[in-house]
């Protein structure tokens, strides 16, 4: 596999009201790879996605998206290359699912532009991939959490981006929906060469699906590499303050939690 760099961060630093949230973040993601970002609460994961997505502007450093500093790109140009699925979203007005997914085409259109043939194809494909065909004529208020999550993913897919960011895509989902959505995204990496960066809570899912895992701890990338390289009892102790066993299952490192260092301080030392 030729490894082209699709997204690279170079010394990215971000502060909010004098608190440093991200400290000199460096990493590079290859085209068509599935990457997970893990780390405890408040380690800066969502902020990092916000910076890459252009919702937040880093204090210093560069974000190179598809070969060009994304700060030099117009927001519309960035939106043609990069999409993000937020943790949750809601609509105050009763748009139909298909109309919502069609909003993913906005970066590709002029301001009054009608949907072209290729726009409609992209929308159809996004709806099909996310298995929303039967729900096209629904409004968001009639959908379950998992279905809403799929709508959010469909908007992003309709954008036809090179890079897809996901902010904890499995949070509100039951077990089978978690697997479904991750399989869906993983297929997109292989089939379309989409580069995925996903914030993950579940270490075992991250291990199973990721080509590359980034560990964010205390505002810095502490470890990065394959699941085999990264997921280890020491990392879990240092970053998540848990005592755990890591064993191989199905070829993937899998963790079993034993206890938390916070609740039974000292017993694991």
């Amino acid at each position: 596999m030729t490894s082209r760099i699709e997204l690279a961060l170079n010394q990215v630093t971000f502060s909010y009201e004098n608190n440093r949230i991200l400290d000199r973040i460096n990493f590079a993601l290859t085209t068509g790879s599935f990457n997970s970002l893990i780390g405890p609460n408040a380690s800066g994961k969502t902020t990092l996605l916000g910076c890459i997505a252009g919702n937040l502007t880093p204090d210093t450093g560069q974000i190179i998206l598809s070969g060009k500093d994304s700060q030099l790109r117009q927001p519309k140009e960035t939106a043609q290359l990069l999409a993000m699925v937020p943790q949750q979203f809601d609509m105050p007005f009763a748009f139909y699912v298909r109309e919502i997914v069609a909003m993913g085409r906005i970066p590709h259109k002029r301001f009054l532009g009608r949907l072209s043939q290729s726009d409609n194809e992209a929308i159809d494909q996004a709806i099909e991939l996310t298995d929303l065909s039967d729900l096209q004529g629904e409004t968001l208020s009639h959908l379950s959490g998992g279905e809403k999550q799929r709508v959010a993913l469909a908007i992003a897919l309709a954008q036809e981006p090179n890079v897809l960011l996901l902010d904890e895509p499995t949070t509100h989902l039951d077990l089978s929906s978690q697997i479904d959505i991750l399989n869906m995204v993983k297929d997109l990496c292989y089939a379309k060469g989409m580069t995925v960066l996903s914030v993950m809570h579940d270490i075992n899912l991250a291990s199973r699906y990721s080509d590359h895992i980034l560990v964010l701890h205390k505002n810095r990338i502490l470890h990065q590499g394959t699941a085999l390289e990264v997921i280890a009892p020491n990392m879990l102790r240092d970053v998540f303050a848990v005592r755990s066993e890591v064993h191989m299952h199905d070829g993937y490192p899998t963790i079993s939690l034993l206890s938390s260092y916070n609740s039974d301080l000292g017993t694991g030392q």
């Binding site: 919702n55 117009q74 939106a79 937020p86 979203f89 748009f95 970066p107």
Partner: peptide, 24 residues
């Protein structure tokens, strides 16, 4: 106001989502 109609549609996704669709 018709000229910003499609951008108003995007705003109903929320400000951050609209921004990520390239809307100013």
């Amino acid at each position: 106001s018709l000229l910003i109609a499609i951008h108003l549609n995007a705003l109903s996704l929320g400000n951050n989502s609209a921004r990520r669709l390239g809307v100013d």
